[in-house]
């Protein structure tokens, strides 16, 4: 974290030097930066609080318990909902997914869960709404849910098919 703040200092110095070279662009650069800064600061504290709340209220164990036994459309929907809850970065999801597979969860559910965890997070959707608007955010969300579900089913079929072939070829 201290490294990131040091990096920020370096970036600010570099920016200052660049602005000294192009003094006529000073207003353009600071206006743009300020606009994005204001837009971000209006939502970032709220987004981070929501993230904190879900991290505390919903544990990895809860996710595993519900997702382990659900199947079919219900399984895929649950996988999307649990994946979308803000419960940590993607590398936290891999061990959860591995445990789910060991406990016999459907491959499609696990794939959908991982993909939802990666790209349909609630805090992310809020920032997307703020910066890119409702139409962009909603259409990308719906398309992602549809295609990620299809991918889950497709990968499940591929893996089961290749496993069957592997078992069949061994005498």
């Amino acid at each position: 974290m201290i490294r990131d703040y040091a990096l920020l200092g370096v970036v600010l110095i570099i920016a200052a030097v660049i602005l000294m070279i192009f003094p006529d662009r000073f207003d353009a650069v600071t206006t743009k930066s300020w606009k994005y800064f204001a837009e971000m600061m209006m939502i970032l504290p709220a987004v981070m609080l929501i993230l904190g709340l879900f991290t505390v209220l919903i544990s990895k164990e809860t996710v595993g318990k519900y997702l382990g036994k659900a199947a079919g459309i219900k399984g895929i929907l649950l996988a999307i909902v649990f994946g979308a809850l803000p419960t940590g970065p993607l590398y936290v999801a891999f061990p959860v997914a591995a445990t789910l597979l060991k406990k016999g969860a459907r491959i499609s559910n696990v794939i959908v869960f991982l993909s939802a965890w990666a790209c349909i997070k609630l805090p992310q959707e809020m920032v997307e709404l703020q910066f890119l608007g409702l139409n962009f955010m909603a259409s990308r969300l719906i398309l992602t849910i549809v295609f990620v579900s299809l991918m889950g089913v497709a990968i499940e079929h591929m893996i089961e098919w290749s496993d069957k072939k592997a078992i069949g070829s061994k005498p």
Partner: peptide
Amino acid sequence: LPIVLIVIVFIGLFLGL
């Protein structure tokens, strides 16, 4: 926060230059 601010500085330079 620092990463957000770094990106915002980049965006400003990018859009301004």
